[in-house]
Design a protein around this nucleic acid. Sequence first.
RNA 1: GGAGAGGUGUCCGAGUGGUUUAAGGAGCACGCCUGGAAAGUGUGUGUACGCCAAAAACGUACCGAGGGUUCGAAUCCCUCUCUCUCCGCCA
Length: 421
Amino acid sequence: MLDPQFVRNQLDDVAKKLATRGLTLDTASLTDLENQRKLCQVKTQELQSERNRLSKEIGQLKAKGLDTAPTMAQVANLGEQLQASEAQLEQIQTQLNHILLTLPNLPHDSVPVGRSEEDNLEIRRWGEPKVLDFTVKDHVDLGAQLQMLDFEVAAKITGARFAVMRGGLARLHRALIQFMLDLHSQEHGYTEVYVPYMVNADSLQGTGQLPKFAADLFHIPEQNFYLIPTAEVPVTNLARDEILEQLPVKYVCHTPCFRSEAGAYGKDTRGMIRQHQFEKVELVQFVKPQDSYAALEELTGHAEKVLQYLELPYRVVALCTGDIGFSSAKTYDLEVWLPGQQKYREISSCSNFEAFQARRMKARWRNPETKKPELLHTLNGSGLAVGRTLVAIMENYQQDSGKIAIPSVLQKYMNGMSMIG
RNA sequence: GGAGAGGUGUCCGAGUGGUUUAAGGAGCACGCCUGGAAAGUGUGUGUACGCCAAAAACGUACCGAGGGUUCGAAUCCCUCUCUCUCCGCCA
């Protein structure tokens, strides 16, 4: 959520910045609503103050054994007015609040201005796509040939956009999770956490998925729980309604992720790129506001390190104003080279949310200089999306025979095996 | 799932309708005392929002959450939630 005071006082600036995201803010009606709010709030508080004063008087009169009837009559008059005024104020505030909750974050000044992913800015590349001297297969054909990756049986058990893995491939998938968790916790200073895979609506509002993006989530109505679309939700909400004394705090967490992919019909229907259920290792940081942009570079580097150890070619892209996510002020995507598609595809997204999520969550830290609780900054990034990493390994490490070589850093997690198939 | 007990500020803890403006204690901050410290002692000590150019002052709200009763609710009623104890079930 944007700072309501900032929106109020710098409305034109806010509108201008939101416009770069392709969003038109109706400043006139917002100003109008804000003026109504101000009038109504002042009036309500005056009436409340008057009621409190008279009620106290009644108490004092009673204590002295005096007649309270005239004062009671006076306050009775107030009652109706006050009730109406309170109701009106609540209605206005609900409207204002809903608008604020559905406004996206303001992009940082360093974010390239643009309309769509076409305008994203490539920052750097690492590694060279390998030239293979045989006909390259994609992961679907490779998996089918190995009899280790099966979409048909998953469709039977559940439906479209699910996968079943067997044998060496299932194990490689698990090895990737182990490797990533070990790397980030042992070399990058993250604390490993285990969290619930179902969350309540407050948590989703805290990180920004609700109220606007309910359609993207799997919902369990009986308990009003939601399956998490990313570990970002439970892990970031660890700081909700808390005052942290020590910053930074860095967490790494492996979870499955569940996404309805509403609106993605017909997109990436082949293979494991876009599934309803996938595994991800997520990095989350809580930092002091002044440190958050340095932390974004650092966190992105941590995610890159995974690809470097796995020797997978990739590039880093700065998302433009039109392509960054709702809650983000700045995002870098890591895109890995997929020989089967002859394309770089997103495998990680690293974002600085500044105080946007913290304000929604009331996540604060105690600033030793002011000794006051202040909003902290939150960041997260995939480190990495496990399913897509598996796809990248299959396609980049494939042999002419259809077997898959195992990257050397993963072999110790695979009982020393060097090849699948 | 059944029965019961609870949730009060940074922490402990009192408070069953009206000077509660949330007692008291601990902690913390700043004084005093001291050669210095401890002890002792005094003062202060939450959050959010509004008003304001801003600050101060002032006002409003906040005792797990949401409703209700009342002129007035931490206190009474209802619903929900979380924690603990016992029983049942269970990986």
